[in-house]
Design a protein around this nucleic acid. Sequence first.
DNA 1: AGCACGCCGACT
DNA 2: GTCGGCGTGCTC
Length: 855
Amino acid sequence: MVDCPGATGLYTYQLAEHLKVKPGDVLSVPFGSQQLGAIAVRLLSEQPDQLQSAQIRTVDTLISAGFFTASYWQLLERLAAHYQTPLIQVIRTALPPGLLAKSKRRIRLASQPDSSRLSQLTDSAQQLLSRLQQSPTADYSWRYLQKQSRTAYRDLQQLLQQGWVESYLATPRPPRPKQQQAVSLVAHDPCLADLTRRQQEILAVLQRHGGDCWLSEALQLCRTTATTLKGLAAKGCLIIESREVLRTTHGAQGDRDRPKTLTSHQQAALAAINPLSGFASVLLHGVTGSGKTEVYLQAIAPILQAGCSALVLVPEIGLTPQLTDRFQARFGDQVCVYHSALADGERYDTWRQMLSGHPQVVIGTRSAVFAPLPKLGLIVLDEEHDSSFKQDQPIPCYHARTVARWRAELENCPLILGSATPSLESWLQVKGAEAEETSRGGEAEREPAEKSSESDERQGGQKITDPKATTPPATGSPSQLPRSPLPHSLYLSLPQRIHTRPSPPIEIVDMRRELGVGNRSIFSRTLQRSLQAMQDAGNQGILFIHRRGHSSFVSCRSCGYVIECPRCDVSLAYHQPHSQARPTLKCHYCGHAQGHPAACPECGSPYLKRFGSGTQRVVSELAKQLPDLRCIRFDSDTTRTKGSHRALLSRFAQKEADLLVGTQMLTKGIDLPQVTLVAVMAADGLLYMSDYWAAERTYQTITQVAGRAGRGDQPGRVIVQTYTPEEPTIVAIEKQDYAAFASAELAQRKALGYPPYGRLVLLRLSSLDAIAVEHTAEKVAIALEKDYLSELVSERDYTILGPAPAPILRVAQRYRWQILLKLTLGVALPDIASLRQHCPDRVSFAIDVDVLNLF
DNA sequence: AGCACGCCGACT
DNA sequence: GTCGGCGTGCTC
């Protein structure tokens, strides 16, 4: 199976004598004019009839062996089928990047331009040429140049034809084990007489250090040169050889930590988990600070003892240095970290190390669900409600929670889902009908929310193909709803914090009343007083804002013009630079950045005003109102560089600041005992992002930040500022009643047929060509209804919404359209992958099964 | 993805 | 009659 889009089916290759290949091995093979990655599927004893010997080419190299076990193949096939993705794409995501390398087409300046053919060039071709001539290497990938402008393709054709540039195929270079020179003393006593005094000294030093080390270390140790050591090697006193070295970074080896005494709830949970031997899905519902990590650690210990490995999945590794530290402190170098931010080489080495089968714990993000651990004994998915477990680009758009469940089933091992705020999906799975019990009141109040989510579906001039959709969608057919918990599922609860610390109360502050009494600040009076009190007591606090940057947009006071991104249909956000540098405007979608203009680009008025409040704005407002308060900003602007999370957090932990001001990142796995105050600036901001699960996300996010308060000896306090305190989600947050929130929200979802009572499948189309996407989307929607749904699915079990432009039509110069398909739960999704045939090359097409992000 | 092939319109 | 654009199909 070759890694080439459009090459469906299998191809036959020959093996050279010396190459031993088994099914599942990763290979590099010639294919057409290029060199591609491929997977060996089966070995043939004789040549297939329909092929002639001359047609069969020879496998080039064996890249990696022994990776696929039978259950692993099943996992990948299940993924391909469920997410409607070609199997090779799934294999691609499971392998470390670069392993399935292919030859790349590149462009370089012609060494000897064919002067006989040089003629007129268009302006854009000339521009491209001068760019190439000015660059130091004059060598770019074909793909990169194509992306530079709309006319790049034509320009390159012109330059190629006229002999200015030449194209060539660079051979693929899959990652390889890193080699390093090592020095080791030979066993026998060398004949000292033949050696100079300096040489004898060097041997003595090496001897004292164990007689075996890296060459670079030896040079430092003995203060000598490589030539000298080579001389010794020539005399037979030592051996210099290349040895494999793993590029894995092991965390700081601090003090080894011992298992902690457990609370009674922790003990009960562990007593339920430890006896599990086969597949089981456990929802560990532990309030923030209840000690879930300790349960994971003690659940994993016996697995390692039994010679098996464990997989721990977390939302974002950079955000949880404390978690990895704790695992490393407990299990030492049996722990390795695997995620996409690793350098390709590191990732490759870690991956190969996992194949070895040594008992180990792999901690990683979404993609680590594919970790090739041969003897898997347990999977833990921490913060299981977190949406970063869902991939929305590129295909396969898989959810690590779903894949982890399949994997646990196939490997026949337990799966632990941990969260303080479980996803409604997981909640329903363990609670069944119990989850849907009507909550105490609140039902009627939710009416407005229902209306808004209905109209959201049609925003942006959405065209409805299906007349059914103009009437309220069919309510879910009751027979298909889960009435009882799924088999093999278990609910375990940690309702109390460790050390019997109370969970902090949550105070809701009505910002409309603040305005009413003349407080126009973004900080309520309660918050101002609490900040002051916190500082006076020498405590620390966290301020949560759901948006980074300074203001969300910049607008002209004279003409109302809003400065927008030239590449996307969004306004640019204002960013205050650190020092005296010029303020900048940034696009949060494509990364475009530009200077802040002195005057309105539209009318020339100098009066530009910033609206909305991000982290920077809050920090500068704080500086005005509470000048003594020291703040650290914690968002993706200040934490972009490697290790900066850890650096900022440890500065805060060492009390270099009183207040941590930040975004979503604050909600995840931070344990700071000195924090007594947590404030949420505007809870509504989260609710307004109105997709069907905005309420769920709001509840989760706010509860998670609130959980950062009062983790030390002193009690915590949580203040949530809002303009809509009567909003049911806010009320549920105040009461800290997850079950009530869940049943009210589930009732909503049920009525509208949304997940987890229905399925959503999103077809995304995008192109540089605005007209082409729109036409293609129309064609695809019609084909979807006509060729797939109308024949295979009963009419009341599906609804097609769209095609419609994406809520933000243009991002990074690409126009995006989408078609949303809503299915009744339990109805099989027909194989719609072949819809791709309706898309011309310039329109890209993706199927997102069980979508979360509707943007 | 990359390349060859073949059809069709514009030009000598 | 020929050149070159672009859509189509194949690659073991």
